[in-house]
Simulated scan of single mutants.
Amino acid sequence: MPAALVTGASRGIGRGIARRFAADGYDVAVNYRSSDAAAQNVVDTIETETDQRARAIQADVGDPDAVESCVEETVDAFGSLDHVVNNAGINEHQYTPELSPEEFQRLLDVNVTGTFAVTKAALPYLEDSSVDEGPSVINLSSRLAHAGADYEPHYASSKAGIIALTKSHALEFGPTIRVNAIAPGFIETDMTDATTSEESKAQKRQEVIPVGRLGTPEDIGQAAAYLRDAGFVTGETLNVNGGQRMQ
């Protein structure tokens, strides 16, 4: 049975991707940093809704030793690792005058170095994969990687770095492993609920999103499933934003 590791999968976008992969016939490692109950809920949901196995695995992707253990536990649980989705990340709304170098570095350590570390740890197992569509890595970037953000320059910078890392790894790992990225637009999650008012969300729907609604974690799960199976696509960034930013 093919297996996938989804980091930061206890809620939001990660949860949506984990559920989609399980619905498509993959065993799923549900990585999380601190939300034990939420991660177990994702596992229980997957095992109730599908015939697939799921395992909650605690690891901070900013800790290289924890990353190694997470990947090894995934392989021990399922016998293989065929796809990796690097979704784990942190975000803080801070302007440059308020932002310390240590805070800037911590966000880069989790968002960029964490993505690199998980991919590196998974590499030997992905190279051994025999799935028909071929193994892949999918990295979560953001529309802000293209647009920038005056209120979170460290976050936008990290997401731009993920796109560069995606292209570099696609070049390095081909033709064995495909590497792509998703750049979500405004997606309704716990994180956006905590930082965005209903008035602001309504304004985005009406004024800046041509399809007229906010995105959902299921929308990103659908995009991840496409990139997982798209055997002639690598090094690309799929913008999933309802037309909010067209290129």
Rank of each mutant, 00 (worst) to 15 (best):
A23G: 14
V6K: 04
V28Q: 12
A29C: 11
R15Y: 01
R20T: 11
V30D: 04
S10F: 03
N31R: 13
G14D: 08
D24A: 15
S34R: 15
I13R: 05
S10M: 03
D44L: 10
A37K: 13
A37G: 12
G14W: 02
S34T: 15
R11Y: 03
A38Q: 14
Y32D: 04
T7I: 10
A3G: 02
N41E: 15
N41Y: 02
R33Y: 12
D27A: 15
G8R: 13
A29T: 07
A4S: 09
R20Y: 02
A29S: 13
M1I: 13
A39W: 04
N41L: 05
Y26K: 05
T7E: 08
R11D: 06
P2Q: 03
A23K: 14
N31T: 14
G16H: 00
G8W: 12
A9N: 04
R19L: 12
A39V: 09
V6P: 05
D44T: 14
P2F: 01
A38R: 13
R15D: 00
D27P: 06
F21A: 10
F21W: 14
S34K: 15
G12K: 01
A29F: 04
A29V: 05
Y26D: 10
R20K: 15
Q40I: 05
G14T: 08
P2I: 01
R11C: 07
S35K: 14
R15E: 02
G25W: 04
S10T: 09
Y26Q: 10
N41R: 13
G8Y: 12
R19P: 00
S34F: 09
A38F: 08
A39K: 05
M1W: 07
A9T: 07
D24I: 02
R11K: 14
S35F: 08
A37H: 11
A39G: 11
S34V: 11
R19D: 00
A3W: 00
N41I: 00
A4W: 00
F21I: 10
P2W: 01
S34C: 09
G16C: 01
A38L: 13
I13F: 09
R11M: 08
D36Q: 14
R11H: 06
A38K: 13
V43R: 12
T7C: 11
V30E: 05
I13Y: 06
D44C: 05
V30F: 04
R20F: 01
G12L: 01
A9K: 03
G8K: 11
S10H: 06
M1Y: 11
N41W: 01
Y26S: 10
D24Y: 02
F21N: 07
A9W: 03
A18I: 08
M1H: 12
G14E: 06
M1K: 14
V42M: 09
A23E: 15
S10Y: 03
Y26N: 10
A18V: 09
V43Q: 11
R19H: 08
G14S: 11
